[in-house]
Nucleic acid binder design. Structure first.
Lengths: 225, 225
DNA sequence: TGTTTATATGACTACCTGGTCACATGATGA
DNA sequence: TCATCATGTGACCAGGTAGTCATATAAACA
C-alpha cells in the first residue's frame, strides 16, 4: 500500500501564494504529460518557470513525490467527474444508460483536461512508473470494480444475455470505451473512426453507434430493448 | 515516406558471422523491448555483449537506425505469420472465421515472440519514436486495411448488419482483438479475463467467447449464424 | 614475406539527468 | 534595530547518455 505521505508536498509548497503554486503545478503536469515519468526533466521545468532548482526541492522530496502529487490531482479530477454508481445506475434497465453516462464523462474529461489524460496514458504504458499498479488501479473506473457489479446485477435480472459471462461483458465495454477514448485523444491510434480532434457531436454519435452494437451483442433481448 | 536505407545496417554488420550477428540482434531487440526507444542504452547493450561501443557504430549509423532495423525485423515476422486475405477469406460466410484466424495468429505470435511483441507495445505508446506513425501503420494489420475491405464485402452480401457502418465494425474487432492481446501479454491490463500468462487453451476459449459477442452484435442475423 | 584493407577497440567529448548544500534574501516579531 | 526563521538560489556532484576517433589487430592479397 502506498503511503499517502509520499504524495504530499512539503508545507513550503502549500504556503506559496496560490497563483505561484498553480503556475508550478501546471508546469509540472505539462512536463510529465509530454515526456512521461522517466524522461520528464525537472531541469527543464525550473528553466521554464524561471525558478531555481533548489526551490523545487523545498517544495517536494524528490521526483517521485512530484509525480505522485501530480497524479493524485488527476485521480481526484476523475473521481469528481464520474463518481460511484448511483441508485439509478443499479436498475438493470438503466445499464446501458449508465455505460453511456460514464463514457460521456470520459469524453468530457478529455475535452476539459487533455493534459491530464495524456499524463494518464503515459502512466498506463510507460514502465518503471513509481507505484504504477496502485495508482493505475485507483483510477481504472471502466473496469471490474465499476461495471462488474452493475453487469452482474443486470445479468441476474435479465438485462444482459445469460450466456455471456460477466468478465466478458466488462471486457467488451472496457475495450471499446478505452480504445474509443484513446482514439479520441491520440490521432495515430485512430484508424477508421476519424475521431481525432473531432467535435463532441461527432464523438457522441460514434459512441452511440458502438454502444448500440454492444447492446445487440450483450443485451438480454426484448426485455430491455 | 521513410527511406528504406535508414533501416539498413552497414555492410560490416552483414559480413559478420551469422552466430555473432544473431547474438547482437537478440541483445538489441531485448534492450529496446525492455526499455523502449529513448531509455534503451547502447552502453548497456555493448557491455552485455562484451563488444566495444565503436563496433556498434561500425554496424549501424546511429541509435535510430538500430531501432528501425530491429523494428523492421518485427514487421517481417508479423507479416510472415498473418499474410494477406486469401480467396477463402473473401467469402462473406467466412468472415468470422477469418477474424478468428488472424486473432489466433496474434496469440501464437505472442507465444512465439514475446520480446518482439513487447517491442511493439513500447513503440505504440512511447512518444518520440523515430518515424512512429509510419512504422506503426506498417504493422497495424488488424485495422481498416485488412478487415475493412473484408467487412465491406461481407456487409454487402448480408454477412453483417447493414445498419452498422464498416468503420464501426472494424473498430469493434480491432479494439477487442488489440485489448485482448495486450491483456494476454501484459498482466496489469487484465482486469477480469485472467488471460495473463494463461495457457493457450484458456486464451482461445476467451477469444471465442468474445468473437461470439461480436458476432451477435455485428452479425447479419440468421443468414450466416 | 610485406602491404593493403576490413574490423575491433575503449578512452574521450559534449551534454544531459536528479539531487545537494552553503549561502543569500525576505519577512516577522521583539 | 536586531535576531530569528522561512524561502530562494545556482554552482556543483556523481552518474548517465549517444556518438567519435586515433589506434590496434586481424585478414586478405601480392
Amino acid at each position: 500500500m502506498m503511503k499517502n505521505e509520499l504524495t504530499k508536498p512539503k508545507q513550503t509548497f502549500l504556503n506559496l501564494a496560490e497563483e505561484k503554486r498553480l503556475r508550478i503545478e501546471k508546469a509540472l503536469v505539462e512536463e510529465f504529460a509530454r515526456e512521461g515519468y522517466r524522461r520528464a526533466s525537472l531541469n527543464n521545468v525550473v528553466k521554464r518557470l524561471g525558478i531555481a532548482k533548489g526551490s523545487l526541492y523545498q517544495y517536494f522530496d524528490n521526483k517521485e513525490a512530484i509525480f505522485l502529487f501530480v497524479f493524485e490531482r488527476f485521480t481526484r479530477l476523475v473521481k469528481s467527474m464520474v463518481g460511484k454508481p448511483s441508485a439509478a445506475d443499479w436498475r438493470p434497465d438503466n445499464f446501458w444508460q449508465t455505460v453511456r453516462r460514464v463514457w460521456e464523462a470520459g469524453i468530457i474529461f478529455i475535452d476539459r483536461h487533455p493534459v491530464y489524460y495524456q499524463l494518464y496514458l503515459n502512466a498506463l504504458f510507460e514502465q518503471d512508473i513509481p507505484h504504477r499498479e496502485e495508482i493505475i488501479s485507483r483510477v481504472r473506473l471502466f473496469s471490474m470494480e465499476f461495471f462488474g457489479p452493475l453487469a452482474a446485477a443486470a445479468r441476474e435480472r435479465g438485462g444482459l444475455r445469460p450466456d455471456v459471462p460477466v468478465p466478458v461483458v466488462v471486457f467488451m465495454i472496457d475495450a471499446a470505451m478505452d480504445r474509443f477514448l484513446q482514439s479520441y485523444a491520440r490521432s495515430y491510434l485512430d484508424d477508421g473512426l476519424k475521431l481525432a480532434a473531432a467535435d463532441r457531436a461527432r464523438a457522441e454519435a460514434g459512441m452511440d453507434s458502438i454502444i448500440e452494437v454492444l447492446k445487440n451483442g450483450l443485451g438480454g433481448g426484448q426485455r430491455y430493448p
